[in-house]
Amino acid sequence: MAEPHAITLAEAKGTTELHVEPSALGITAAGWVALSMLFVIGLMLWKKVPQLIAGMLDTRIATIRTQLDEAAQLRGEAERLLAEAKARSAASAGDAAAIVAHAEAE
């Protein structure tokens, strides 16, 4: 059985459809988007937003550097305290051994 073919409106009338892109002041939608984007970028440069962001980043970098320096200082102090604790532990172990030996001798 033969399948019926759908006939489109353009085929029936023998014309093609033309679409006109809307525009305002001779500029299409894509042109308005480009103009508004340029305006926003220009406004950001005029208000010195990149310098403001750079200043904020520099401040954050300085804060992180001071925190890293403080952390390095604390680590050095902790290592020194650990070495002292190990020395005390070794000394007390020696003292304990001496006490045990003295107790066994008596």
Rank of each mutant, 00 (worst) to 15 (best):
T59S: 11
L9Q: 12
A30T: 12
G76C: 02
V20P: 02
S92K: 08
G94V: 12
P4E: 08
A29N: 09
R75K: 14
A103E: 08
E17L: 14
V40S: 04
A24K: 09
S92P: 05
D69P: 00
G14C: 01
E84D: 11
M1I: 05
A78T: 04
P4L: 10
V40F: 09
I27P: 01
L52I: 07
I64L: 13
A12M: 08
A29R: 11
L18E: 06
R88H: 05
L25N: 14
A10Y: 01
H102Q: 11
G31A: 12
V49D: 05
E104F: 06
K48E: 07
A87N: 06
E17T: 08
L57A: 15
A12I: 01
S92C: 10
I53L: 15
A93G: 02
H19E: 10
G55C: 01
L38H: 08
K13S: 14
L9T: 13
A62F: 02
G94L: 10
F39T: 05
V20D: 10
A12C: 06
E70L: 14
V100Y: 03
E17F: 15
H5R: 15
A105W: 03
G42C: 00
T15I: 08
L45V: 00
I53C: 07
D69I: 14
I99F: 05
D95H: 04
T15L: 13
H5C: 02
T59D: 14
R88A: 04
D69Y: 00
A87Q: 15
E84R: 10
A34F: 03
K47F: 06
H102T: 15
A97P: 00
E11D: 06
L9Y: 03
Q51I: 07
V100C: 01
E11L: 00
F39C: 07
P4R: 12
A12K: 08
V20K: 14
G55Q: 11
T15W: 05
L35S: 06
A30V: 06
E104V: 13
I27N: 04
P50C: 03
G42R: 05
I64Q: 03
T63I: 13
G42F: 02
A71L: 07
G42E: 04
E79W: 03
G94P: 02
L18M: 07
L18Q: 09
S92L: 13
A87H: 06
L9N: 07
R65T: 15
K47W: 08
T63F: 01
G26H: 04
R75C: 07
I53K: 15
G76I: 01
T59N: 14
Q67E: 15
V33S: 05
S23K: 13
A34E: 15
A34L: 06
A90F: 04
T16K: 11
H5E: 09
L9V: 12
T16W: 10
H19Y: 07
G31Q: 13
Q51D: 11
W32C: 03
R75L: 13
L74F: 02
G42M: 00
Q67M: 11
E77T: 04
E70V: 13
A97N: 02
V40D: 04
R75H: 05
A24Q: 10
F39K: 09
W46L: 06
T15V: 14
S92G: 03
E79R: 04
A96K: 09
S23N: 09
E77Q: 12
I99D: 07
A29M: 11
D69W: 02
T28W: 02
W32R: 11
G55R: 14
